[in-house]
Design a binder for these strands. Structure first.
Length: 451
DNA sequence: TGGGGTTAT
DNA sequence: ATAACCC
């Protein structure tokens, strides 16, 4: 298919090695990370906030803040009390309603999808883009005399020198140019700033994107990979190693990246299971073969509220109605239909850090249909089915104390666009019988056969 | 400690 | 249904 030729600037189109399309062997990944996203959205909504120290508040927390506030000592997830103490001039806006954040977040993802359809969301403010194919398309037509004009955009990690004879360097440089174009488009079209990291996999792209911090970008060349991962002071900073795993690793005497690199694999596999052990040990070497998985449409919609105390069924019902009203609007705008509802609660407890329980059930088909237009008809029956889930979890005859309610719609299915009278219409399970509940499902087949 | 999300078991 | 991870 393609010969590998060792470094040649001679010969006309430059392609000393070409990675087969879809190969995982050498990729160019861009990680895009918006600067203090919620605060940026708030400053766009109300430009008078610009230039002032701004925090976005959810309940008693400042969940994020702009750079003016950071310079005055405010940190992410700081309590409002501490933040006001540190910075009495801090302006706070309520950020409990995520509607605008979510809408702009998806605009960012859609913009990035114009560059490559392979975009994976991570939270509301981060995206991975696999630009491998586009990079190849830009590099292949280049003649060797055009190579000197190939330059990096933004920072190079470690100030490593670039070798244009190295095809991996060339690819990553083109990746850095694409990252710059993405950030420019985000700024011009959406008024948003952010960082980008360019590297050969998701782990490294994500780690390198944070090296130069607001509104800058950094590319990692392969020779500096070890320096990047060794710059982590603790394994908990490694994306993929969370709170639980870090605690278990520490119990094994593993706290640094070199600790994890050199720890005996067999023992690690026995302690954490083969899957987690192999994955995180590879991460410790900067290796990550996980693909950029296009996120596409969301898999679920949920709304939640936390509070000091909810101890009666009536109170819970009223809170659930609020959550549900918002959810019904969202689901109606999405157009797809959820086939499952889930209710999650958190019970008050002094010790337990993470305690949540959930119950889910299928949404009855007659309710699924009502989710479409007015959506008010859907409310009452839906509340009733959610309250059944509630009573299944909470013994309402006994005292209880809840601190959170979450309602989630999932198992979303595309609504059927099959037209009446077509083969698809009759082949679609329960579509042709949907409007006549009295008919039995074998009727569908008969009707189909007769046509 | 908020208000979301995802995948694996 | 839970547990882990991410923001």
């Amino acid at each position: 298919m393609e010969r590998a030729r060792a470094g040649a600037l001679a010969g006309s189109p430059v392609h000393d090695q070409v990675v087969p399309a879809g190969s995982s062997s050498s990729r160019v990944i861009v990680h895009v990370d918006l600067d203090c996203f919620y605060a940026q959205v708030e400053m766009i909504s109300n430009p008078e906030l610009k230039g002032k120290p701004l925090g976005v508040q959810q309940k008693s927390l400042v969940v994020t803040c702009n750079y003016e506030a950071r310079e005055l000592g405010v940190k992410k997830l700081m309590s409002v009390r501490d933040a006001k103490e540190k910075c009495p001039q801090l302006v706070l806006v309520n950020g409990e309603d995520l509607t605008r954040y979510r809408a702009i977040s998806y605009k960012v993802t859609e913009l990035l999808e114009e560059f490559s359809p392979v975009v994976e969301r991570l939270g509301f403010d981060e995206n991975f883009v696999d630009v491998t194919e586009m990079v190849e398309k830009r590099l292949q037509p280049l003649q060797s005399d055009e190579l000197p004009a190939l330059t990096v955009s933004g920072h190079v990690y470690n100030d490593q020198s670039i070798n244009l004879h190295d095809i991996l360097h060339r690819r990553l440089l083109v990746g850095s140019q694409m990252a710059a174009e993405m950030r420019e488009a985000m700024h011009d079209r959406l008024g948003l700033t952010g960082c980008a990291g360019v590297a050969s996999n998701k782990l490294l792209a994500k780690l390198v994107s944070g090296v130069f911090k607001p509104n800058q970008q950094t590319v990692l060349l392969p020779e500096s990979s070890q320096d990047l991962i060794l710059s982590l002071k603790h394994i908990k900073e490694m994306p993929g190693i969370g709170y639980k795993t870090a605690k278990r690793l520490e119990a094994l005497g593993i706290s640094s990246v070199p600790d994890l690199q050199t720890f005996p694999s067999k023992i690690l596999e026995k302690e954490l299971g083969i899957s987690v052990a192999q994955r995180i040990q590879k991460l410790s070497f900067g290796e990550d073969n996980s693909p950029v998985t296009p996120s596409g449409l969301p898999q679920s919609f949920s709304e939640e509220d936390s509070f000091k105390k909810c101890s009666s069924e009536a109170e819970a019902k009223s809170k659930i109605e609020e959550l549900l009203a918002s959810l019904l609007n969202r689901v109606r705008q999405d157009g797809r239909k959820p086939h499952t509802v889930r209710l999650t609660i958190r019970r008050y407890s002094s010790e337990k850090h993470y305690n949540r329980e959930s119950r889910q059930c299928p949404i009855p088909p007659h309710m699924i249909q009502k989710l479409g237009a007015g959506s008010y008809d859907a409310m009452t029956p839906m509340v009733d089915t959610i309250m059944k889930l509630f009573r299944n979890m909470v013994n309402v005859k006994m005292p209880f104390h809840l601190t959170l309610l979450n309602v989630c719609f999932c198992n979303l299915k595309a609504v059927n666009t099959a037209k009446k009278g077509t083969i698809d219409y009759y082949l679609t399970p329960s579509l042709s019988t949907m409007s006549h509940p009295g008919k039995r499902s074998f009727k569908m087949k008969e009707t189909h056969m007769e046509d």
